[in-house]
């Protein structure tokens, strides 16, 4: 089975280190970007199968980045997991914020901090392997 790639976008080096090691332990190949602007070039360079984005980033926020990716010619369909410590965003899955952009598809998953590791690997497995076991049937 081919190794899946995950891009982590977070400005906190601790989170990048931790989630990077954890996902490598789980068999993923990981790269990171510390802000929205560098995340777009990382997409082209690293060609990930999924992206994990923190909401609070310096400059453009993670939700801005999400909108940008969804409107991107090449990356609009990539699975995106949003991480946030903000309950309001978790509860409405970021929909309120994104409603203004008329997006059909926002984040594939909004995960509250601190991250539930089991939930994260389960959803990544499903999102990066849509035709395998546990594929999304929604």
């Amino acid at each position: 089975m081919e190794i899946k790639r995950v891009l982590i976008v977070d400005d906190d080096p601790d989170i990048v280190d931790y989630l990077g090691l954890f996902l490598e332990d789980e068999g993923y190949e990981v790269s990171s970007a510390n802000r929205s602007s560098s995340a777009l070039s990382a997409l082209d360079d690293f060609e990930p199968d999924a992206v994990i984005v923190d909401v609070v980033l310096p400059g453009k926020s993670g939700l801005d980045l999400l909108v940008h990716i969804r409107q991107h010619e090449r990356w609009s369909e990539i699975p995106i997991v949003v991480l946030t410590g903000n309950d309001a965003i978790v509860q409405d899955k970021g929909k309120n914020y994104l409603a203004g952009f008329h997006l059909e598809r926002g984040a594939d998953l909004v995960l509250a901090k601190p991250v539930d590791r089991d939930a994260l690997v389960a959803v990544l497995a499903r999102l990066t392997n849509p035709h395998g076991l546990g594929a999304c049937t929604e």
Partner: peptide, 29 residues
């Protein structure tokens, strides 16, 4: 509560790295 969640994530990560480092015998980790 917002700040604490961020810090908990950091603590959670540190603890994961300590535990998994011991299990895999990776002193650097």
């Amino acid at each position: 509560s917002h700040g604490i969640k961020g810090l908990l994530t950091g603590l959670d990560g540190g603890i994961y790295m300590v535990n998994s480092g011991f299990q895999r015998d990776k002193p650097e980790r």
